[in-house]
Every structure is written in C-alpha cells, then in structure tokens.
C-alpha cells in the first residue's frame, strides 16, 4: 500500500539555517503516528511545509497520490488534510457554534447544523456551544480546534501538541477522542513533547533531529535506540 502522506527530500532553509534537511517521512492510511524530537528539530516547520504555510526550498509533498507541494493552505485543506496549531487558535470573539460554521464544507444549512451538534456532543462541547470561544479552558480550546477540523472530514489530521496546556483530567478525554477518531479511519500525525501521551497513543513514532528523520519504530523500539538518546541528550 502506498503512503497517504509522504515527503520526498523535503528541505526548508531560513537564510543560512537549515530547518528541514532532505526529510523523507511517510504516514499510511488510518495510521496514528507520533512525531517527536528535541526543540528546534524541525517538527512544526515540517507541518507548515505540508500544509502550505511555508513554501519548501526543495523536495516534494505527496498526498493521496497527488503532488501538493507549494499549494496554499486552503487548497491543502480541501484535499483532505486537517491541522491544529501549537498555540490553539480558536476564533475567540465568536461563539463555539459560530467557530464550527467557519470550515468551508459543501453541505446545506440543515445538514451542516446536524453535523455540528454531532461533533460538539462527541467532543463534549455541546453544553458550551453558545459560549464565547475565548472563555473556554485550554483543553476545551484544543477540543474545539479538533472539532472544527473534523467538520471537513479530513483523511489526515496533523495535531501540533494537543496536550500542551491541558489539565490532566481533560487529557485522558482528549487521548480517548483522538483514538476514537483514528479508529474510524482518519490517519493522524501528532507532534507531542509529553512522552506518556505518545506512548499511549501511537502505534509508530518518527524521531526527528536537525531537520532529518533519525529513526522510526514503535515506542519501545525508539526508547531503547541509542541514536534517539543522542538526539535528546547530545552526542558524546
């Protein structure tokens, strides 16, 4: 089976700094993959390259059999890639329900509304639907971002640190939600610093350092990998 998402020699330089350096990673259909690496290893830049926020200096991004390199974010999103941000970006002055209306989906108003309520219920946000989004807790904001993205019925969702700033009680809920979304067939690539989250969620983990893939494997495999330890602690 060919990969759903694949990067081919993906490269991005900012002035003299090489943020992503000939990166080759792949995510298969319905897979739940973790993307980890020390700060500055190029994880978020990779997401920005895949979703069209940055134009790559070199290499290509292939998605679902098509070359999507250099496409605009709204075009990438229409192809079926959804994404949340490291710092949540809810539309703060709008209500939760209004937030859910922003995704550009082809449904009529009635069907759209049904889908919104279904997703809000699933992600435990139905009771705050009429609240302003900036009044939500950190975790609820993350859930709202996720709900918004799911309106688009993406084939792949990229999550940038879904656990950052979330209280532990809500964390379990978010993990369960992510698993459930994945079980329905949506592939997920998740960047996360909290290793307990990664070990609980991911079948496979990709480790990045200095803009390259160091290794990939199950959490157990990479935990015992000398190269991974070196990436995090520095080579001796």
């Amino acid at each position: 089976m060919s990969a759903l998402l694949a990067t081919d020699g993906l490269t991005k330089t900012f002035g003299g700094i090489v943020a992503v350096d000939g990166l080759d990673i792949a995510v298969d259909e319905s897979e739940l993959v973790g993307l980890i690496g020390p700060n500055g290893s190029g994880k978020t830049t990779t997401l920005n390259l895949v979703t069209g926020f940055h134009a790559p200096t070199g290499g290509a991004v292939l998605f679902d059999g098509d070359d999507v390199t250099g496409m605009k974010p709204y075009q990438v999103s229409k192809r079926g890639i959804g994404r949340t941000f490291q710092i949540s970006k809810p539309f703060g002055r709008m209500t939760v329900f209004e937030n859910m209306l922003v995704p550009n989906v082809p449904y009529g108003p009635k069907e759209r509304e049904e889908r919104i309520w279904k997703l809000l219920e699933e992600l435990h946000l139905d009771h705050v639907a009429e609240h302003r989004a900036d009044a939500l807790s950190g975790g609820q904001k993350k859930l709202l971002e996720l709900a918004r993205v799911l309106m688009l019925e993406p084939k792949l969702v990229l999550l940038d640190e879904p656990a950052a700033g979330v209280n532990p009680a809500l964390m379990d809920e978010i993990i369960a939600d992510i698993k459930q979304i994945n079980e329905r067939g949506t592939a997920i690539l998740v960047i996360e610093h909290d290793m307990s989250v990664i070990s609980e969620l991911c079948e496979r983990v990709i480790v990045m350092n200095a803009g390259r893939q160091v290794t990939t494997g199950t959490f157990e495999e990479i935990r015992n990998d000398e190269r991974v330890r070196e990436a995090y602690l520095g080579g001796a």
């Binding site: 979703t51 926020f53 605009k72 974010p73 709204y74 999103s77 229409k78 959804g82 994404r83 941000f85 970006k89 809810p90 539309f91 703060g92 002055r93 709008m94 209004e98 937030n99 922003v102 995704p103 550009n104 989906v105 971002e145 918004r148 993205v149 309106m151 688009l152």
Partner: peptide, 14 residues
C-alpha cells in the same frame, strides 16, 4: 471575523 481572529486557522479550514 474568523480571519480577524486568526487568518491561519481560517485558511486551514478551507
């Protein structure tokens, strides 16, 4: 209004 709040997010939502 969504663009005013976050143009990146509005864009990523298609």
């Amino acid at each position: 209004r969504a663009i005013r709040e976050s143009s990146d997010a509005a864009q990523m939502l298609g």
